[in-house]
């Protein structure tokens, strides 16, 4: 079966203007180093990393929201790296985005019915007024919102309900891929699970794929089939969920998992901190060797000199490390 999404050596660079001196100078910052992965139909890939690791950039590049510096993106087998104009517009119907903050990602001056119906309207799939109303009603029912919410404005809803509206909006066009950029991190802990469950139910019914970007490891574990770990714009480890959580191989993944607090204070106190506290790397600086070497307890001379390639160390389990755990 053709994967829904194939990313090959995708890289992204930003031009940054330094205004420190008398004359502004341009500098190129690589936000994303060549990155490759696949997402199968009906599969969820969790994309995890700390702030500034490039996970949002990766999501935006796949949706063609930021310029791609190199590599290619295949959507259902077709190269979309250079798609533009009406083709890009049609592709947008197939790939949708769920944004992080539901309070700011819905226009406060539009009714829920208009917000959910908008994708259909702009793609000319609205049909008659009555048909559109029917479609909107079924979408709202699908995401578990009461039918009378259609005539209301966003401010009348809670964060969890608004994120349901965001999901309904993303679903309106029957996309094959949804990039969810931290869809639950702005929500109360109590409603996170509900929204994630909803996303899973929809996936089961529709067979669509998710790229689930998050930093909350527990949520990623719940929803993902496979997990990719980003560090400083590089893919450091990618494997099935059980492998990542059960037997992480990259020292950074180990450190991430150890950073999750254990809900038992004495046990928590006894745990050792594996990752030394250090500042996250400066993305602008030219780097030699492994990006994680400065923070890594296992780093050797080789790590500081040579960048490790992403290598398969077990079936379906790849990591970029000279000394995997």
């Amino acid at each position: 079966m053709t994967p829904t999404l194939t990313v090959e050596n995708l890289s992204v660079a930003y031009e940054v203007t330094d205004r420190g001196g008398v004359w502004p100078s341009q500098r190129r910052v690589t936000a994303l180093h060549p990155l490759s992965f696949e997402i199968a139909p009906g599969e969820t890939l969790g994309l995890v990393g700390e702030s500034g690791s490039g996970k949002t950039t990766a999501g935006r590049a796949i949706l063609r929201r930021v310029d791609v510096a190199g590599g290619c993106i295949l959507f259902q087998g077709a190269d979309i790296t250079r798609a533009s104009g009406s083709r890009l517009r049609r592709l947008r119907a197939e790939m949708q985005l769920i944004l992080q903050d539901p309070f700011t990602s819905l226009n406060p001056r539009m009714r829920i019915a208009d917000l959910v119906g908008e994708p259909l309207t702009v793609h000319g799939r609205a049909g008659t007024r009555a048909e559109l109303r029917g479609r909107v009603a079924s979408l709202l029912e699908r995401v578990g919102l009461p039918a009378d919410s259609a005539e209301r404005f966003p401010h009348a809803f809670s964060g969890g309900q608004l994120q349901r509206v965001g999901i309904a909006r993303a679903l309106a066009l029957n996309p094959r891929l949804i990039v969810a950029d931290e869809p639950v991190s702005a929500l109360d802990v109590s409603v996170r699970a509900q929204v994630v469950n909803l996303m899973q139910d929809i996936q089961r019914e529709e067979g669509l794929s998710y790229l689930f970007i998050a930093h909350d490891l527990a949520i990623v574990r719940q929803i993902s089939h496979r997990v990719a770990i980003l560090y400083a714009g590089r893919l450091v480890e990618i494997a099935g969920r059980e492998a990542i959580y059960g037997r992480p191989r990259h020292p950074y993944t180990v450190a991430l998992l150890d950073a999750v607090p254990v809900p038992d204070p004495p046990a928590q106190r006894l745990r050792q901190r594996t990752a030394p506290l250090a500042a996250p790397p400066d993305m602008g600086a030219a780097m030699q060797g492994c990006a994680y070497a400065a923070r890594c307890p296992r780093a050797t001379e080789r790590c500081r000199a040579e960048e490790p390639p992403l290598a398969e160390i077990a079936p379906g389990h790849k990591t970029a490390c000279w000394h995997p755990v």
Binding site: R92, L99, E118, P119, V122
Partner: peptide, 17 residues
């Protein structure tokens, strides 16, 4: 720069809309 404008672009709205 508001997120809902980005959301509208993703959904496929043209500049006029």
């Amino acid at each position: 720069a508001a997120p809902y404008v980005e959301a509208a672009e993703i959904v496929g709205c043209g500049p006029a809309r």
